[in-house]
Protein backbone atom coordinates (compact mmCIF):
# COMPACT_ATOMS: atom_id res chain seq x y z
CA UNK A 1 0.00 0.00 0.00
CA UNK A 2 1.26 3.38 -0.91
CA UNK A 3 2.14 5.58 2.06
CA UNK A 4 0.39 8.92 2.20
CA UNK A 5 2.82 11.77 2.76
CA UNK A 6 1.22 14.07 5.34
CA UNK A 7 4.13 16.46 5.54
CA UNK A 8 3.58 19.93 4.20
CA UNK A 9 6.12 20.65 1.60
CA UNK A 10 8.44 23.28 3.00
CA UNK A 11 9.54 25.79 0.47
CA UNK A 12 12.79 27.70 1.02
CA UNK A 13 10.84 30.83 1.85
CA UNK A 14 8.84 29.02 4.49
CA UNK A 15 12.02 27.58 6.04
CA UNK A 16 13.52 31.07 6.26
CA UNK A 17 10.28 32.35 7.78
CA UNK A 18 10.24 29.59 10.40
CA UNK A 19 13.87 30.27 11.38
CA UNK A 20 13.37 34.03 11.63
CA UNK A 21 10.08 33.58 13.40
CA UNK A 22 11.79 31.32 15.94
CA UNK A 23 14.59 33.84 16.47
CA UNK A 24 12.12 36.70 16.84
CA UNK A 25 9.94 34.82 19.33
CA UNK A 26 13.05 33.74 21.25
CA UNK A 27 14.17 37.39 21.50
CA UNK A 28 10.71 38.46 22.65
CA UNK A 29 10.81 35.72 25.30
CA UNK A 30 14.23 36.95 26.43
CA UNK A 31 12.85 40.47 26.94
CA UNK A 32 10.54 39.02 29.59
CA UNK A 33 12.76 36.28 30.98
CA UNK A 34 16.05 38.17 31.41
CA UNK A 35 14.77 40.78 33.91
CA UNK A 36 13.05 38.05 35.94
CA UNK A 37 16.19 35.94 35.84
CA UNK A 38 18.24 38.96 36.90
CA UNK A 39 15.86 39.62 39.81
CA UNK A 40 16.14 36.01 40.93
CA UNK A 41 19.91 35.63 40.77
CA UNK A 42 20.58 39.08 42.22
CA UNK A 43 18.34 38.23 45.16
CA UNK A 44 20.54 35.24 46.03
CA UNK A 45 23.87 36.98 45.35
CA UNK A 46 26.22 38.06 48.12
CA UNK A 47 26.71 41.75 48.93
CA UNK A 48 30.11 42.06 47.27
CA UNK A 49 28.69 40.78 43.97
CA UNK A 50 26.04 43.48 43.69
CA UNK A 51 28.20 46.48 44.55
CA UNK A 52 28.57 48.99 41.78
CA UNK A 53 26.30 49.30 38.79
CA UNK A 54 26.32 45.60 37.93
CA UNK A 55 23.64 43.73 36.02
CA UNK A 56 23.97 40.05 36.82
CA UNK A 57 23.19 37.51 34.13
CA UNK A 58 25.47 34.75 35.33
CA UNK A 59 25.14 33.79 39.01
CA UNK A 60 28.30 34.61 40.94
CA UNK A 61 27.38 33.42 44.39
CA UNK A 62 24.51 31.91 46.33
CA UNK A 63 23.23 33.16 49.67
CA UNK A 64 19.79 33.15 51.24
CA UNK A 65 20.80 35.86 53.71
CA UNK A 66 18.50 38.47 52.18
CA UNK A 67 15.49 36.15 52.35
CA UNK A 68 16.33 35.34 55.96
CA UNK A 69 16.49 39.09 56.68
CA UNK A 70 13.05 39.60 55.15
CA UNK A 71 11.62 36.71 57.16
CA UNK A 72 13.03 38.26 60.33
CA UNK A 73 11.43 41.60 59.58
CA UNK A 74 7.85 40.57 60.34
CA UNK A 75 7.21 39.20 56.86
CA UNK A 76 5.00 36.36 58.01
CA UNK A 77 2.72 38.52 60.12
CA UNK A 78 2.27 40.97 57.26
CA UNK A 79 1.89 38.11 54.79
CA UNK A 80 -0.90 36.52 56.86
CA UNK A 81 -2.63 39.90 57.23
CA UNK A 82 -2.41 40.48 53.47
CA UNK A 83 -3.74 37.00 52.68
CA UNK A 84 -6.68 37.46 55.07
CA UNK A 85 -7.52 40.92 53.75
CA UNK A 86 -7.17 39.82 50.11
CA UNK A 87 -9.27 36.68 50.64
CA UNK A 88 -12.05 38.29 52.66
CA UNK A 89 -11.96 41.36 50.44
CA UNK A 90 -12.25 39.26 47.28
CA UNK A 91 -15.17 37.29 48.73
CA UNK A 92 -16.89 40.50 49.79
CA UNK A 93 -16.31 42.11 46.40
CA UNK A 94 -17.58 39.09 44.49
CA UNK A 95 -20.62 38.91 46.76
CA UNK A 96 -21.64 42.42 45.80
CA UNK A 97 -20.34 42.53 42.23
CA UNK A 98 -22.17 39.43 40.96
CA UNK A 99 -25.70 40.38 42.12
CA UNK A 100 -25.06 43.97 41.03
CA UNK A 101 -23.93 42.76 37.59
CA UNK A 102 -26.93 40.45 37.32
CA UNK A 103 -29.32 43.23 38.32
CA UNK A 104 -27.86 45.70 35.84
CA UNK A 105 -28.02 43.07 33.10
CA UNK A 106 -31.82 42.95 33.41
CA UNK A 107 -33.18 44.61 30.30
CA UNK A 108 -36.43 45.60 31.97
CA UNK A 109 -34.80 47.18 35.02
CA UNK A 110 -36.37 50.58 35.66
CA UNK A 111 -33.71 53.32 35.43
CA UNK A 112 -31.05 50.90 34.19
CA UNK A 113 -29.29 53.51 32.05
CA UNK A 114 -29.35 56.02 34.88
CA UNK A 115 -27.76 53.50 37.25
CA UNK A 116 -25.16 52.58 34.65
CA UNK A 117 -24.31 56.21 34.00
CA UNK A 118 -24.00 56.91 37.71
CA UNK A 119 -21.66 53.96 38.03
CA UNK A 120 -19.59 54.93 35.00
CA UNK A 121 -19.19 58.48 36.34
CA UNK A 122 -17.13 57.07 39.22
CA UNK A 123 -14.64 55.74 36.66
CA UNK A 124 -14.15 59.18 35.16
CA UNK A 125 -14.24 61.45 38.19
CA UNK A 126 -12.09 60.79 41.23
CA UNK A 127 -13.19 62.58 44.40
CA UNK A 128 -9.65 62.77 45.75
CA UNK A 129 -8.13 61.39 48.88
CA UNK A 130 -9.33 63.93 51.45
CA UNK A 131 -13.11 63.51 50.83
CA UNK A 132 -12.54 59.75 50.61
CA UNK A 133 -10.76 59.80 53.98
CA UNK A 134 -13.52 61.93 55.52
CA UNK A 135 -16.20 59.46 54.40
CA UNK A 136 -14.23 56.47 55.69
CA UNK A 137 -13.71 58.30 58.98
CA UNK A 138 -17.43 59.18 59.23
CA UNK A 139 -18.20 55.47 59.20
CA UNK A 140 -15.65 54.87 61.95
CA UNK A 141 -13.49 52.66 59.76
CA UNK A 142 -10.15 54.46 60.15
CA UNK A 143 -7.43 52.22 61.56
CA UNK A 144 -9.55 49.10 61.04
CA UNK A 145 -9.23 46.36 58.43
CA UNK A 146 -12.75 47.20 57.25
CA UNK A 147 -11.29 50.41 55.77
CA UNK A 148 -9.28 48.26 53.38
CA UNK A 149 -12.28 46.23 52.22
CA UNK A 150 -15.63 48.03 52.42
CA UNK A 151 -14.86 51.40 50.73
CA UNK A 152 -13.04 49.69 47.87
CA UNK A 153 -15.31 46.66 47.67
CA UNK A 154 -16.79 47.34 44.25
CA UNK A 155 -14.73 47.94 41.14
CA UNK A 156 -16.68 49.64 38.37
CA UNK A 157 -14.51 48.03 35.71
CA UNK A 158 -15.15 44.54 37.07
CA UNK A 159 -18.85 45.27 37.47
CA UNK A 160 -19.14 46.28 33.82
CA UNK A 161 -17.31 43.12 32.71
CA UNK A 162 -19.67 40.91 34.72
CA UNK A 163 -22.75 42.82 33.60
CA UNK A 164 -21.71 42.48 29.95
CA UNK A 165 -21.08 38.78 30.33
CA UNK A 166 -24.43 38.14 31.98
CA UNK A 167 -26.15 40.19 29.28
CA UNK A 168 -24.71 37.79 26.71
CA UNK A 169 -26.34 34.75 28.36
CA UNK A 170 -29.40 33.74 26.25
CA UNK A 171 -32.66 35.07 27.69
CA UNK A 172 -34.30 31.70 26.96
CA UNK A 173 -32.14 30.07 29.65
CA UNK A 174 -33.34 32.51 32.29
CA UNK A 175 -36.92 32.48 31.03
CA UNK A 176 -37.13 28.69 31.25
CA UNK A 177 -35.89 28.85 34.85
CA UNK A 178 -38.56 31.43 35.65
CA UNK A 179 -41.22 29.20 34.09
CA UNK A 180 -39.98 26.42 36.35
CA UNK A 181 -40.71 28.71 39.31
CA UNK A 182 -37.18 29.84 40.16
CA UNK A 183 -36.87 33.24 41.84
CA UNK A 184 -34.07 35.73 41.03
CA UNK A 185 -31.75 34.39 43.74
CA UNK A 186 -32.15 30.81 42.53
CA UNK A 187 -31.58 31.95 38.93
CA UNK A 188 -28.42 33.74 39.98
CA UNK A 189 -27.05 30.83 41.99
CA UNK A 190 -28.17 27.89 39.85
CA UNK A 191 -28.15 29.33 36.34
CA UNK A 192 -26.00 32.44 36.08
CA UNK A 193 -23.05 31.42 38.28
CA UNK A 194 -22.47 27.98 36.72
CA UNK A 195 -22.38 29.42 33.21
CA UNK A 196 -20.23 32.38 34.28
CA UNK A 197 -17.30 30.46 35.76
CA UNK A 198 -14.67 31.89 33.32
CA UNK A 199 -15.60 35.51 34.05
CA UNK A 200 -15.97 34.81 37.77
CA UNK A 201 -12.48 33.27 37.86
CA UNK A 202 -11.00 36.22 36.00
CA UNK A 203 -12.72 38.82 38.17
CA UNK A 204 -11.78 36.92 41.32
CA UNK A 205 -8.15 37.09 40.26
CA UNK A 206 -8.53 40.77 39.42
CA UNK A 207 -9.95 41.52 42.84
CA UNK A 208 -7.38 39.38 44.62
CA UNK A 209 -4.52 41.18 42.87
CA UNK A 210 -6.09 44.56 43.63
CA UNK A 211 -6.37 43.75 47.33
CA UNK A 212 -2.95 42.15 47.38
CA UNK A 213 -1.21 45.15 45.81
CA UNK A 214 -3.18 47.80 47.68
CA UNK A 215 -0.79 50.34 49.12
CA UNK A 216 -1.99 53.93 49.33
CA UNK A 217 -5.26 53.09 51.14
CA UNK A 218 -3.33 51.05 53.72
CA UNK A 219 -0.91 53.90 54.34
CA UNK A 220 -3.64 56.51 54.57
CA UNK A 221 -6.36 54.64 56.48
CA UNK A 222 -4.25 52.59 58.87
CA UNK A 223 -2.42 54.48 61.61
CA UNK A 224 -1.10 51.54 63.56
CA UNK A 225 1.82 49.84 61.86
CA UNK A 226 1.04 46.49 63.51
CA UNK A 227 -1.90 46.38 61.09
CA UNK A 228 -0.11 47.16 57.84
CA UNK A 229 0.07 44.76 54.93
CA UNK A 230 2.91 43.05 53.15
CA UNK A 231 3.19 45.60 50.35
CA UNK A 232 3.69 48.41 52.86
CA UNK A 233 6.30 46.41 54.75
CA UNK A 234 8.19 45.51 51.58
CA UNK A 235 8.20 49.06 50.29
CA UNK A 236 9.34 50.28 53.69
CA UNK A 237 12.22 47.82 53.67
CA UNK A 238 13.10 48.82 50.13
CA UNK A 239 13.34 52.51 51.00
CA UNK A 240 14.56 52.22 54.56
CA UNK A 241 17.94 53.80 53.88
CA UNK A 242 16.27 56.89 52.40
CA UNK A 243 15.77 58.59 55.75
CA UNK A 244 18.00 61.62 55.96
CA UNK A 245 18.26 61.82 59.69
CA UNK A 246 18.54 58.30 61.02
CA UNK A 247 21.35 57.04 58.83
CA UNK A 248 19.70 53.66 58.52
CA UNK A 249 21.54 50.70 57.08
CA UNK A 250 22.04 50.89 53.32
CA UNK A 251 19.93 48.65 51.17
CA UNK A 252 21.80 46.81 48.44
CA UNK A 253 20.26 45.51 45.21
CA UNK A 254 20.22 41.89 46.40
CA UNK A 255 17.89 42.86 49.25
CA UNK A 256 15.65 44.88 46.94
CA UNK A 257 15.38 41.96 44.52
CA UNK A 258 14.62 39.52 47.33
CA UNK A 259 11.82 41.86 48.39
CA UNK A 260 10.44 41.81 44.85
CA UNK A 261 10.48 38.01 44.75
CA UNK A 262 8.73 37.76 48.10
CA UNK A 263 6.17 40.36 47.05
CA UNK A 264 5.17 38.66 43.83
CA UNK A 265 5.43 35.09 45.07
CA UNK A 266 1.77 34.50 46.06
CA UNK A 267 0.37 35.95 42.84
CA UNK A 268 2.99 34.07 40.84
CA UNK A 269 1.89 30.82 42.48
CA UNK A 270 -1.80 31.55 41.96
CA UNK A 271 -1.67 32.85 38.40
CA UNK A 272 -0.78 29.70 36.40
CA UNK A 273 -3.79 27.84 37.81
CA UNK A 274 -6.36 30.37 36.68
CA UNK A 275 -4.65 32.10 33.77
CA UNK A 276 -6.73 30.20 31.21
CA UNK A 277 -9.84 31.77 32.75
CA UNK A 278 -8.08 35.09 32.99
CA UNK A 279 -7.87 35.68 29.24
CA UNK A 280 -11.08 33.95 28.20
CA UNK A 281 -13.06 35.71 30.94
CA UNK A 282 -12.01 39.15 29.79
CA UNK A 283 -12.73 38.33 26.15
CA UNK A 284 -16.17 37.05 27.07
CA UNK A 285 -16.96 40.10 29.16
CA UNK A 286 -15.98 42.45 26.39
CA UNK A 287 -18.25 40.99 23.68
CA UNK A 288 -21.44 42.83 24.40
CA UNK A 289 -21.80 46.42 25.53
Amino acid sequence: MKKINNKIKNSFGRKVFVVFNGILLFCICLVFIVPLWNVLITSVAKDQDVLGNVYLIVPKSFSLKQYSRILQSGYFKSFVRSIIIATIGTMFSMTITLPAGYTLAQKNLVGRNLFMNLIIITMIFDVGLVPFYVVVRMYGLINTYFALVIPVGLSTFNLILIKNFISSIPDSLIESARIDGANELIILIKIIIPVSIPIIAAITLFYFIQYWNRYIEVVMFIHDNTKTTLQVLLRTLMFESESATTGAESVYDNFKMAIMVMGMLPVLVLYPFIQRYFISGIMLGSIKG
Binding site: I216, V219, M220, H223, D224, N225, V232, R235, E240
Partner: peptide
Protein backbone atom coordinates in the same frame (compact mmCIF):
# COMPACT_ATOMS: atom_id res chain seq x y z
CA UNK B 1 -1.27 57.06 70.71
CA UNK B 2 1.16 56.59 67.84
CA UNK B 3 0.43 57.24 64.18
CA UNK B 4 3.32 55.73 62.24
CA UNK B 5 3.20 56.18 58.45
CA UNK B 6 6.05 55.02 56.20
CA UNK B 7 8.75 57.64 55.76
CA UNK B 8 8.20 57.81 52.00
CA UNK B 9 4.50 58.74 52.40
CA UNK B 10 4.83 60.84 55.53
CA UNK B 11 4.18 64.29 54.07
CA UNK B 12 1.11 63.07 52.20
CA UNK B 13 -0.26 61.43 55.33
CA UNK B 14 0.25 64.56 57.44
CA UNK B 15 -1.40 66.65 54.72
CA UNK B 16 -4.34 64.26 54.66
Amino acid sequence: KAIIPPNSQYKQKVGL
